[in-house]
Amino acid sequence: MIVVRVKKELIGPKGKFNLEVDFKVEKGEFLTIFGRSGSGKTTILRMIAGLEKPDEGYIEFDGKVYFDSSKKINIPPQKRNVGFVFQNYALFPNMTVFENVAFALDKKKKENIEKVEEVLKLVELYNLKDRYPSSLSGGQQQRVALARAIIKNPDILLLDEPLSALDYSIRIRLQDELKKIHKMFNLTTLLVSHDKPEVFKLSDRVIYLEDGKIRKVGTPREVFIGKSISGKFSFYGTVLDIRKSDTVKIVTVDINGNLVEVITTTEDLNIGDEVLVGAKAFNPIIKKIN
């Protein structure tokens, strides 16, 4: 189990604010920190990895204290057993795919070479092992970064918006892969994301972070849907277009790639808003498509 209780003053889009969080990650759990950019979620990951120092607080991994401001303990990142996947992947341009992954291990022992090959096969990169990162696609680079982060069996896998730069279809595939790897190794995973469908798909539990404070904690359903709507037929989407028609508005919403038009009278709706599209008064039908 991982215990995180930290405070740090940050500068966000609205000026200074205090990041102040207190949470635990259970072994094998897939926990997501959800929040808008600038809410401090990446900083939390960085503090857990030891890349940034909290102003005060306490971080513990399975009984080992990594940070304790009252006792002036601050274990450097090298000695914290974490796997970190950066938003820009951070692959070493001077090394091949194989070398990038092998970098995580000590010297070239024979069993290590086998281990690297095994992990590369797992993420379907074995055929590309002698290529340099610059010649790979975004999704392939992402898989190298993931392979490199998990090869040392970290106590926790930290994912900093790892899929945000990728195309929709690749993102879906990699989400499946992340889920597979998480299950396969029972790897405690902490994801930072601002993509609700992704959070729903992957996480056991979500922390909703706003202005540096935890607003809600729970399963994705509890956190995002709550009791605000009584019907069970609802989808998350993004507003693409708003047209005025007499007294109402016709809103075009993108729900996971499906475009729908909804009539509404809601006033404060803008293009780009995340919305919940739901219906309460009729029974939806489900039909299988071949």
Binding site: A49, F86, A90, A104, K152
Partner: peptide, 15 residues
């Protein structure tokens, strides 16, 4: 040098 390359190396246990 991108700072995240250096940080990645640190998280991979390198001095």
């Amino acid at each position: 040098i991108n700072k995240s390359l250096i940080e990645a190396s640190y998280t991979l246990g390198k001095s």
